[in-house]
Amino acid sequence: MKIVAPLDNVAETGALLKGGADEIFCGVLTERWQKLYSDIIPPNKRGMESNLHSFAELAKVVNIAHSYGKKVALTLNAPFYSDEQVELVKEQVSEAVKTDVDAIICSDPWLIRFLQEFKGEVHISTIGVSLNSETISFYKALGAKRIILPRHLSHDEIVELSKKNSNKVDLEIFGLNESCENVDGYCGFYHRVDEYNKKLFSCRIPYDIEIIGSKNMSINRRIKTRMDHIRSCSSICGGCSIPEFKNAGLSFIKICGRGMPTSYKVKDISFIRFVIDNTDKITKEEIKKKYLEVYGRQCSLKDCYYPR
């Protein structure tokens, strides 16, 4: 099982790789794209602070990674690109190819087809919403080498899907950080409309809730408590599920966290590395103990990626 780690800038490349990352994923948001579409419509779901700013920077990251014998994937995983954006995206692919990048992460059907000529690998983003074996076969037929499974599959569904598909394509799952409460690939909310929205995503706004269809005050209070509880869930860790995922044949584990400080990323990599390297001999309790040791807090159901 390999660790796929997030990267925001050239300077942190060495630290992530030395820390134990097997692959790196990152995006490029050029000045030209930013000028045309601003932060609201990035080419890869992240703003300036979480992206490299040029393909020259990507080339440096790729060079460093290759010197460690590690791979780099470029995210071009906007939910869709409009007709007007197609040429711009094609230019980005062409620039990326020159850097010798190893993979492109995407989901828009035209782009997957366009990449059939690309010598590297095509990874289907979580935005591609591969919830079932048929969808995995659909993307495989288009040329996908790897599928990043959505956050919205349960532990058991992931294990079942992996057992059915172990020989078809590589499967990657989320291991740490940034769980979305909505299905990413079917979500129409924005994240970067203005300063408010950057700090408080629309799914996290403390809405006034009016309950239709129930006049039972005690149930209504309970429902509101539940809504507040869900809003405060951060779903940061899937560590306990890793041993079973590994046994089921899953090959890659993604650590989210573009935009987070390098030290956090290195800490995350060290935690996941510990779990992966000890899957055969470690218990869930020991994983939880390690979590407490690394993060200084007890893990809880509230923070669990794959609760059972």
Partner: peptide
């Protein structure tokens, strides 16, 4: 450009 994008959709794109 942004306005036009926000009024479009995935199958607005000629290749799709």
């Amino acid at each position: 450009e942004s306005k036009k994008f926000l009024q479009s959709c995935a199958f607005d794109n000629g290749l799709n």
